[in-house]
């Protein structure tokens, strides 16, 4: 009798937990997503479309793509180098390097932006030197790229370090012993071994690069059509009570998030499959 009661309780507990989780997701994730699209389409598809092809909106989309197109490859190179160094070699200061890689996660993005203003701004350390040479970093595209690179640089490295650590050096040594050059070894042995982890890191890195607000907001200067990325443009439009346009641009970011989510699930699934097949 007690057993049945206990079973009933666990069944009830399970239902309760599942319902709570679903309700939470609906309230905090699905509802806002639906709201974004309803608001964006509240004046019909024509208004939605014209909000997107408006020159400032197009400029914001272009700038966002440009920033991602620069910062993601930079972080791929940096992430692979850092992970390689940490996983395959022993050197003094290794744990310090690992700690520093995590720094952008623990620092507020606004602070990250301010660091660059402090360094490259007109009153900053390197400001006068840059001004003499007519180089503009803050309130210009280079500053936005720098801030984005800073904020996104742990993603690839963090994903690869444990993976490469686990894989050890045997495969690389085997390739070298068979006469492969260092580059051949990297291309034909290391890269295939880390490809799924790398792809996963790149997806997260890209999503963050396109969605970053805080750090970019500080260094951008909000020049319409020049230094506004999509998240900044959304904010400006919203502050101007231009809700349809704001939500239309926001819906693009939301779509990006959905695509990232789907790709991420596919990669995770492949990654798991790959790992399982490796672990005999």
């Amino acid at each position: 009798m007690n057993d049945i009661l206990a079973l009933f309780r666990t069944v009830r507990a399970r239902h309760f937990l599942i319902a709570a989780a679903l309700a939470f997701i609906a309230l905090f994730l699905v509802l806002p997503l639906v709201a974004v699209f309803t608001e964006a389409l509240s004046k019909g598809f024509a208004a939605y479309g014209s909000a997107l092809i408006e020159p400032d909106a197009l400029a914001a989309v272009k700038l966002t793509l440009l920033v991602a197109a620069i910062s993601v490859p930079v972080n791929i190179v940096f992430g692979i180098c850092a992970a390689w160094a940490v996983a395959k070699f022993d050197f003094p200061g290794k744990s310090l390097l690992v700690t520093f890689i995590d720094l952008p996660f623990s620092v507020s993005p606004v602070v990250a932006g301010l660091i660059y203003v402090l360094l490259f701004g007109a009153q900053g350390w390197l400001g006068p030197w840059l001004q003499d040479r007519d180089i503009q970093i803050i309130f210009a595209v280079p500053g936005i790229v720098l801030a984005t690179v800073f904020v996104t640089f742990p993603f690839v490295a963090r994903e690869l370090i444990p993976l490469m650590n686990e894989q050890g050096r045997d495969d690389e040594e085997a390739a070298l012993s068979l006469g492969a050059s260092g580059f051949q070894t990297f291309l034909r042995v290391t890269l295939p071994n880390i490809r799924w982890g790398l792809l996963y890191g790149v997806l997260l890195c890209n999503a963050r690069a396109m969605g970053e607000f805080g750090a970019v907001s500080v260094v951008s200067g909000h020049l319409r059509g020049l230094t506004n990325t999509m998240p900044l443009h959304v904010e400006i439009l919203y502050n101007e009570y231009n809700f349809v346009a704001a939500f239309a641009v926001a819906s693009l970011l939301a779509l990006l998030a959905l695509v990232t989510l789907i790709l991420k699930s596919i990669v995770e699934w492949r990654f798991d499959y790959h790992r399982r097949s490796v672990a005999h």
Binding site: D170, D171, E173, A174, A175, L178, A180, S181, V189, V278
Partner: peptide
């Protein structure tokens, strides 16, 4: 020729590609 304790076979390559690796590089 070096044979590793845990074989260190390239898991993303077929057996034949593994064996032919030394020639292909």
């Amino acid at each position: 020729g070096f044979v590793f304790q845990h074989y260190a076979l390239f898991k993303h390559m077929t057996v034949a590609d593994n064996v032919g690796f030394g020639l292909s590089v």
